[in-house]
Design a protein around this nucleic acid. Structure first.
Lengths: 363, 363
DNA sequence: ACCCTTGCCGAAACCGGTTTCGGTGTTCAG
DNA sequence: CTGAACACCGAAACCGGTTTCGGCAAGGGT
């Protein structure tokens, strides 16, 4: 009889300890246990401790679905990916997810992800997740300048946190890596190596990061006292093909740059091709600095000097921030930045001998 | 008064239509509505239709958390990633997730993902997700030969579906791409081009796919009447560095192969390097075929001939299979396969002139 | 005409929590 | 000594569903 019962309960719900079990074990009522678990002030400290110790002992954790039906919150973070994004943030995704998951797990939260193809689709996806209470808040990767997701979620009064800074920063929580500092630093380093004509290949201008990085590049140029030649700035290179084309344009300039800073590593790798096509040796004839720290860069020849961003750490921070946001902390306290770390490899070097610089192609 | 009420309800739960609203609108009770929605046989067909039409009209969807508390199921698929995996299935992840998400969304399900670093961690992650009812079943990417996840989940009587085939196929639902067919086909094509000495660089032998693909390679060799020289088979190359080393070993063989088949594209790209280091022109002096269809392959010089797998479609199929599994369909009906599609690019060609084949290095 | 199915649905309990409301027992001022 | 304030907890309603149980009416057999 008892065995039969065991078998039945085992099959479906494995003897999970419920709040009633807790109440029985403690000689209290469900309501008291609930309020103790949630730290309500009208439960004495002594009782709270007693309850929490018992929870520990019985390894009781309130079932999030059960609470959700009353509270509406389910302790889960939402992430909707956009495949149309350039390369679907491919290199980052695994690490980024790992970070998000780790940050969520640390607080006992989970991560629900959805993918969308179009922007329309994306909005619909948000709506569906919200309507079904599948996410208490969202992480918004790859901030766009005037991000439609932000207006959508803000109107719906749904918590979110941006990865990247939006134009209208004041109204959101965000985490970002200071790409502009990296770009600025890149210029300084190149200047220290003697470079005076420095080109810049920017990333996708629809994204917020591109503008920031360009600003950083310009700031660096100003710092070292160089004037920027707008002909040496090219926009919207996010793939290696884009980068090759952009670099080609720079190198075919009457006064070509001796160094190129790239907003994204893929573009930098494209620049390698353009250099090779012109018989320029990267690191000697042409210095290249990228940004992102994709693995392909390390395996290129010569290995790409770049600024490495820690996407796993970013994910962790974002999870943490969003959880705090859902818990009600004010926006102002929920903004963090981090720096990308410089990784010096073989793709930069001192400026080449300038005597026959313009005819370098014939070397 | 009414306005105040509106404001309050709006803030927290946006006037979601509940089962009681349905009951009122229809003049039925909650229980009838519930059973009608779930297609219970003791509700007349007429009433079922009436209820479902009304659900459509009011756009009512039962709240999954609310049902979960009684049923234990929440209409969500679980996916736990292992970062330790070679390159964390990096190239595939975005597409794969998109497919999973699409497949889930089509049935009104969602996807919750978690990441784990170690195997221990992974088991703990499964447990946590199950204990909190965050997933009704799991998708298990990258099948391992004797997969610990399989035993874990089978013991716990939790539905799952494998991406890839396990050694013990009879006990699971799975979806897989027939990599062995691709490898076999590769050999046939190379043979048709005149190649007689063909090397094989396999992927990670801990994974199930590697054994299957090697079998496919051997089967192809047998098909065309070639004997396999075990010295021309190298195992466990999953990165481009691995591939370069493996290919180097093959090319330094006294009787080097004129063609190399690779179990994974990354290894194939590594073989490019080994070829370049020996002044062999890929596509002329040495033919290379890969498998996976990573984007890097298309941009290599020459572009890599490979077998493209559609990871998005795979994800969709896996979601669908798992959902059916959770709904109770028997294992036997839940096995599907697909083929990778051959993509001919520049990395293969007719066998080079054999007269000075062994001295090719000096060319 | 009577009983027994069978089809169909309502009433109410239940799931595992949260929250409102109220009722004790102390304490402390008057 | 009384009354009010306060700290603390129990009783019960509630959230949005599912499920068990039972009741009623129509149909079918004798």
């Amino acid at each position: 009889m008892a065995a039969l019962l065991d078998k039945i309960t085992e099959g479906h719900k494995r003897n999970r300890v419920t709040i009633s079990d807790m109440a029985d074990a403690l000689g209290l009522t469900k309501s008291t246990v609930s309020r103790a678990m949630n730290g309500y002030p009208d439960i004495s400290q002594a009782t709270q401790n007693r309850v929490k110790r018992m929870a520990e002992k019985l390894s009781y954790r309130p079932l999030s679905h059960a609470q959700a039906i009353k509270t509406g919150r389910t302790r889960s973070l939402g992430l909707v990916l956009q495949l149309s994004d350039h390369d679907a943030q491919r290199p980052f995704l695994a690490e980024f997810l790992a970070g998000l998951s780790a940050g969520a797990h640390a607080e006992g939260w989970t991560l629900t992800v959805a993918a969308s193809s179009s922007t329309e689709d994306m909005i619909e996806t948000f709506r569906a997740l919200l309507r079904d209470g599948k996410a208490d808040g969202f992480i918004l990767p790859r901030a766009i300048r005037y991000d439609p997701r932000v207006t959508l979620l803000r109107d719906a009064a749904v918590p979110f946190v941006l990865f990247g800074r939006q134009d209208d920063e004041t109204n959101c929580a965000w985490f970002d890596i200071l790409g502009e500092e990296a770009m600025c630093d890149a210029v300084r380093r190149l200047h220290a190596l003697g470079h005076r004509r420095i080109g810049y290949i920017n990333g996708g201008t629809k994204y917020a990061y591109a503008h920031l990085r360009e600003d950083g590049f310009r700031a660096g140029m100003q710092d070292v006292g160089l004037e920027v030649d707008d002909a040496l700035i090219i926009q919207d290179a996010v793939t290696s093909a884009d980068g090759a084309k952009a670099a080609a344009a720079l190198l075919d300039h009457p006064e070509p740059p001796t160094a190129i800073v790239c907003g994204v590593d893929f573009a930098a790798l494209g620049a390698y091709q353009a250099a090779a096509a012109r018989n320029l040796s990267v690191g000697r004839d042409l210095s290249i600095i990228g940004y992102d720290g994709i693995p392909e860069g390390a395996h290129a020849t010569p290995p790409l000097t770049t600024y490495q961003v820690d996407n796993k750490a970013a994910g962790e921070r974002l999870s943490s921030l969003l959880i705090r946001r859902v818990r009600g902390e004010p926006l102002e306290d929920l903004r963090e930045t981090a720096l990308a770390s410089f990784v010096e490899r073989g793709s930069i070097g001192p400026v080449p001998d300038t005597s026959n610089n313009t005819n370098k192609h014939e070397t």
